[in-house]
Computed example of a mutant assay.
Amino acid sequence: MTTELMMVIAQENLKAHIEKEKEKEALKDLINPLQVWIASASAPACYHLIPILTSGEVFGMHTEISITLFDNKRAEERLEALVTETRELASPVLRSVSICTKVEEAFRQAHVVIVLDDSTDQEVHSLEDCLRSRAPLCRLYGYLLENNAHDSVRVIVGGKTFVNLKTVLLMRYAPSIAHNIIAVALGVEGEAKALLARKLKTTPAYIKDVIIWGNISGNNYVDLRKTRVYKYESAIWGPPQYSHPVLNLIFDSEWLKKESVAILRNLTATGKQFRGILAAHSISTTMKYWYHGSPPGEIVSLGVLSEGQFGIPEGIVFSMPVKFENGTWVVLTDLKDIEINEKIMTRMTSDLIQEKLVALGEVIDFQPYKSGNLLDVMFYWAAIKTVLKHLL
């Protein structure tokens, strides 16, 4: 074969290769990646969240994603550094990563929106100021979600301050997608499992069905009546699916009623642990369940809009037991023996109703529920101090 003929064949091969690559790109563009937006992306949790999202664990190894980091202009340098690190992960499911600091462009064609803890430019000096400062941002986000996001967008709200309130405000200002907005409660659930595991000298992953009721980042109730521990070393053994009720293994009633409650409330009030890793894991696990279903037979805690289940007042976002299946969740209203004491219910719902009314300007002063319990009073003031410290 002459050199001239080889050159002709080479040119033909190159042309065929280029055409084939163009066809591949055209087909690729037809399969749009999942558009994932992270709001308040300069928050510490985002740094831990991105590697999980790009691992393929959440949406699946066959689902390509594009991540957009949304925050204000002041955070641009930090976001650029985050973009560089994300690209260096060389994830097979990551199509692109970019930043957005222009409010009007936020949530453009978003399929998934993750709302992290945000800061506010407003000056706040009281709890009422903190509550009222949530409304303008949620109103803005609601407007952007309604106008820019995909019709089937899924919104997941996480963080350590006013999680229930932010969720119900987003529902109010984005009514067409309200059914697709949820609040993450798995962080509090994880803290409770870890505390129980330390007490029982076992692994937190072996503890299932802890129910978190109420205000995720405030007055809540950790319900252990359905909680079970698997693979527990005791006189009675069974197959892997065999479990013991946790309440049958902890004989220290004083610890259950007071010490454990005080520890968990302190964690909620200070937000000491719910910052980076725990927040990221809780959000990503909830999202994975939303897309692929929760483990069969397992109870999951989730903040959703109350429709009167369990005697909870309608119109507030309340953490309650659910299961995920077929791309949505179902509230487990058929669980037996989980009626909530009226006093506990009043304590939880009273503050949530007050938060919402103050944030919307319908009530001027926040009047917290006072049970006369010293622990409740201590929790209330610790929570206020933490919120103010976080926002000032």
Results as ranks from 00 to 15, higher is better:
residue 1 M to V: 03
residue 3 T to V: 13
residue 3 T to K: 14
residue 5 L to C: 08
residue 14 L to Y: 14
residue 18 I to L: 11
residue 19 E to T: 05
residue 19 E to G: 02
residue 41 A to H: 10
residue 47 Y to R: 11
residue 53 L to Q: 02
residue 58 V to K: 02
residue 60 G to V: 14
residue 66 S to T: 09
residue 70 F to M: 12
residue 76 E to L: 14
residue 77 E to K: 14
residue 80 E to Q: 11
residue 81 A to R: 14
residue 92 P to Q: 02
residue 104 E to L: 05
residue 105 E to L: 07
residue 107 F to D: 01
residue 109 Q to W: 04
residue 110 A to R: 00
residue 114 I to K: 04
residue 115 V to I: 13
residue 122 Q to R: 15
residue 123 E to P: 06
residue 129 D to M: 05
residue 130 C to W: 02
residue 136 P to F: 12
residue 139 R to K: 15
residue 141 Y to I: 00
residue 143 Y to N: 11
residue 147 N to E: 14
residue 149 A to E: 13
residue 150 H to D: 14
residue 163 V to H: 11
residue 164 N to S: 05
residue 165 L to R: 04
residue 165 L to T: 03
residue 168 V to T: 12
residue 169 L to T: 06
residue 171 M to L: 03
residue 181 I to A: 02
residue 182 I to G: 00
residue 188 V to W: 00
residue 191 E to M: 15
residue 193 K to M: 15
residue 193 K to P: 06
residue 199 K to V: 05
residue 200 L to Q: 07
residue 202 T to N: 11
residue 205 A to F: 13
residue 206 Y to Q: 11
residue 207 I to C: 07
residue 207 I to L: 10
residue 213 W to Y: 08
residue 213 W to H: 06
residue 218 G to V: 07
residue 228 R to N: 10
residue 242 Y to S: 15
residue 245 P to S: 04
residue 247 L to I: 08
residue 259 E to R: 13
residue 267 L to M: 15
residue 272 K to P: 00
residue 273 Q to H: 15
residue 278 L to R: 10
residue 280 A to G: 06
residue 282 S to H: 02
residue 287 M to C: 08
residue 289 Y to D: 00
residue 290 W to D: 00
residue 293 G to L: 03
residue 295 P to R: 06
residue 296 P to Y: 07
residue 301 S to D: 06
residue 305 L to E: 10
residue 312 I to Y: 00
residue 313 P to A: 10
residue 313 P to Y: 10
residue 317 V to Q: 03
residue 319 S to C: 10
residue 325 E to P: 09
residue 329 W to L: 07
residue 329 W to K: 05
residue 330 V to D: 10
residue 340 I to V: 15
residue 344 I to A: 08
residue 344 I to L: 03
residue 348 M to T: 02
residue 350 S to Y: 12
residue 353 I to D: 08
residue 360 L to P: 07
residue 361 G to V: 13
residue 361 G to H: 14
residue 365 D to A: 09
residue 377 V to Y: 10
residue 385 K to N: 09
residue 391 L to N: 15
